[in-house]
Design a protein around this nucleic acid. Structure first.
Lengths: 205, 205
DNA sequence: GATATTTTTGAACGCCGTTCACAAAATAAT
DNA sequence: ATTATTTTGTGAACGGCGTTCAAAAATATC
């Protein structure tokens, strides 16, 4: 049995990630405590720092799982071969908001977590966010045949960020945010305006 | 001298707010420490809790000043009587992004600060954010005469949040964010698309 | 000047993330 | 099977944090 050690190590890591996920769900990201996580995972406090670098990295692993689920949910709703790009973008935005509302604490952790001073998000995790742009890109490309690849890449980021901003401010309950009751209809209105404008600008050149 | 006491009390509070502002600028919101603030303000640690409720409330006072400056900057750039609503919205969005870039730590504090569990942002501070919507509303109203007052109020929130989202993700340096070098041009493109779409939808009904 | 009130002070408290000397366990070597 | 070696688990201890509070200093009132 040359693999028992690595197996147990990986198992503990998984248990810690799941415990952290559960803690974020019930207590929020700011309520995530090393002692509570290790207690829930059934290990000693110090074991956390053997399994992962520190608490920040544990959050990154939770976020990694969340974004995988989010990406899957988005890819499911609007395949790249979909006929109508406007309908596809509407479906994507609606699904994005649904996910954020349904999994609020985990979705918030995705965007509100900050690494300690001077530390950089590792590249493997940065790349996981690419799916958020990839699901938009093909539909946006059909809508704006006048834009080149580079401009489309930027516009995909901008379009995502616009919808994201509406969802984020609403979920935070900020004064300037849209009330939760109007979130889906406002996002639909925003995407309608964006796609109408895109169509108009593309046709005119 | 019947007023010396209240004067000194208010003076200390001001000094603490200014010290907190300076600390946020140099260390970021997460680098704000009670000991550093009181040292900079030239008072004892405990004095902070006599001047304000706690550190969170001190941040709220800093945010109050920031949003006043931001509101003034926006009102200056696009008076409500401006002729062209599309140009006005472009100018507002550009100015918003400029302010965020120029005062990054303070602007971030405005949107990333969270009160401790269960606590609510006091109403006086919530209302201070209204200016962000008020500067948009008249121009949006001209662009969308088909919408009633309630729908316009919601759409102002949505429009603000869309631009805000692009700026926020860019300033955080997130993977999905637009590169800082392209921020202004992407915001211009977003507003162009939004206003073109709004115009199109309003004309058709 | 004496008394009452308010403000200032900084040591102390409890909680936090993180470390580390040590114990236990698993693997390797003999 | 026994010993040696390496890895993993443990939890007390550390330093830093926001916050509190009894005592001291400062100010107001008479």
């Amino acid at each position: 049995m040359g693999s028992t050690r690595d197996e147990k190590k990986a198992e503990l890591k998984t248990r810690l990630i799941e415990a952290a996920e559960a803690e974020i769900i019930s207590e929020g990201l700011s309520g995530l405590k090393a002692r509570a996580v290790t207690a829930r995972a059934g290990c000693a406090l110090g074991a956390l720092y053997n399994a992962v670098e520190d608490l920040d990295m544990l959050v990154l692993h939770v976020n990694s799982r969340t974004i995988a689920r989010l990406g899957a949910a988005l890819q499911e709703v609007a395949p790249a071969e979909a006929e109508d790009p406007r309908a596809a973008l509407q479906a994507l935005a609606a699904r994005y908001a649904e996910f954020a509302v349904a999994e609020r604490p985990l979705w918030l952790a995705l965007f509100e977590h900050r690494l300690g001073a001077g530390r950089e998000v590792p590249e493997w995790h940065r790349q996981e966010h690419a799916v958020l742009l990839e699901v938009i890109l093909p539909h946006l490309a059909r809508l704006r045949p006048d834009l080149d690849r580079a401009a489309l890449g930027l516009r995909a980021r901008t379009t995502f960020a616009a919808v994201h901003g509406v969802v984020h401010l609403a979920l935070q309950g900020r004064f300037v945010g849209v009330p939760m009751a109007d979130l889906q209809s406002e996002i639909a209105g925003l995407v309608e305006t964006l796609t109408a404008g895109a169509d108009h600008l593309a046709v005119r050149g």
